Simulated assay, not measured.
Amino acid sequence: MIGFIKRMWFAWRYKRAVKKAVRMAGMTGLKYYVIYINKGLKVVPKKAVKELVAKHRFKKGVTVADIEKRALFVTR
């Protein structure tokens, strides 16, 4: 029963994050990712991910394409 509630809670948060990503992509024209980071869903523009990769905020060898593959949802 607890597992069911957790899955429903995650599904609700996921749907809200996807709606937010689609809405923001429509307004700005940028590509957005829904990523699971630090036990939560984050909506992040691709531009910010590129900047973080360039500043070496991720492990050595991680590219934007790797992050896009692991993203739960990608706009456009």
Results as ranks from 00 to 15, higher is better:
R7M: 02
M8Q: 14
M8R: 14
M8F: 11
M8G: 08
M8A: 15
W9K: 05
F10C: 05
F10W: 15
A11C: 06
R16T: 04
R16F: 01
A17F: 07
A17C: 10
V18S: 02
K20W: 02
V22D: 07
M24R: 10
M24P: 00
M24E: 14
G26F: 06
G26H: 09
M27W: 08
M27V: 13
M27S: 11
T28L: 13
Y33C: 01
V34A: 07
V34M: 08
V34W: 08
Y36D: 11
Y36H: 12
N38C: 04
N38I: 03
K39W: 10
L41M: 12
L41W: 12
K42V: 06
V43H: 07
V43F: 08
V44F: 00
V44K: 06
V44E: 08
P45C: 15
K46A: 15
K46C: 12
K46R: 15
K46G: 10
K47T: 14
K47L: 12
A48K: 11
A48S: 11
V49Q: 01
V49L: 12
V49F: 00
V49E: 01
K50C: 08
E51M: 11
E51A: 15
L52K: 14
A54Y: 10
A54T: 09
A54N: 13
K55A: 14
R57T: 01
F58V: 04
F58E: 02
F58T: 03
K59T: 06
K60H: 10
G61T: 04
G61L: 05
G61V: 04
T63S: 15
V64P: 08
D66L: 04
I67C: 04
I67D: 05
E68V: 03
K69Q: 02
K69N: 00
R70D: 13
A71S: 13
F73T: 07
F73Y: 15
T75F: 08
T75H: 07
T75I: 05
